[in-house]
Design a protein around this nucleic acid. Structure first.
Length: 194
DNA sequence: CCCTGATTCGC
DNA sequence: GCGAATCAGG
């Protein structure tokens, strides 16, 4: 595969959107994340400008295998024009004003994935869940990957919210225990006289 | 272990 | 210019 205008364009777009190199590579197809990163650098857009600047990689002047690099520290030439840090264009967290008097009126921005409160799920399964919740990795939304359990725990409007994060069961979005409560067999889902 | 981006260097 | 290999880190 080669870097056609279209592919480069998509690359730029996704990169500026904050997509990871591997995601971009996956989307493009026919390239590895290394290829994407290499291209990104060649394009000179290593720094994700245009949005928030997490500054994950500030600078690594470290030279490990540099053959000959005449460096002159005394030259303070580049006055890097820092972009005015825009405060998160897309805020995911509503930032609730903690009012001790009232609570729970926080508008939950995101629809909650299946939270089968106290359904008629196998008691064992439930026990299993509450058991593993103690061992959960308590990941944040950003830390979720394709193989981390995406089971949400707690109230998104409070500090007490996190994702299970345990290794998922092959293919499933949840870990073993959460798969147990997430996917109920038709049979046991009989309509209880509601 | 999973993942991330950064860098080097032969092609 | 390209990207695999490697590095450095979370």
């Amino acid at each position: 595969m080669s870097w056609t205008d279209e592919r480069v364009e998509l690359l730029k777009k996704m990169w500026s959107e904050g997509q990871s190199a591997s995601q971009i590579a996956k989307e493009l197809g026919g390239v590895t994340r290394n290829a994407v990163i290499g291209k990104v650098h060649r394009l000179g857009l290593s720094n994700r400008t245009g949005g928030a600047a997490p500054a994950a990689t500030p600078a690594k002047p470290e030279a490990k295998a540099k053959p000959a690099a005449p460096k002159r520290e005394t030259t303070e030439a580049p006055a890097a024009p820092r972009e005015e840090p825009k405060p998160e264009p897309t805020a995911v967290v509503p930032a609730p004003a903690p009012s001790p008097a009232r609570k729970a009126i926080i508008p939950a921005g995101q629809p909650l994935p299946p939270q089968p409160s106290a359904n008629e799920i196998s008691p064992e399964a439930l026990a299993k869940v509450s058991a593993i919740e103690k061992k959960a990795k308590r990941l944040t939304l950003m830390e979720l990957t394709e193989r981390t359990c995406k089971w949400p725990v707690g109230d998104p409007a409070t500090e007490d919210f996190w994702f299970c994060g345990l290794p998922v069961q092959a293919g499933k979005p949840y870990c073993d225990a959460h798969v147990g409560v997430a996917f109920q067999p038709m049979s046991s889902r009989r309509d209880r006289k509601r």
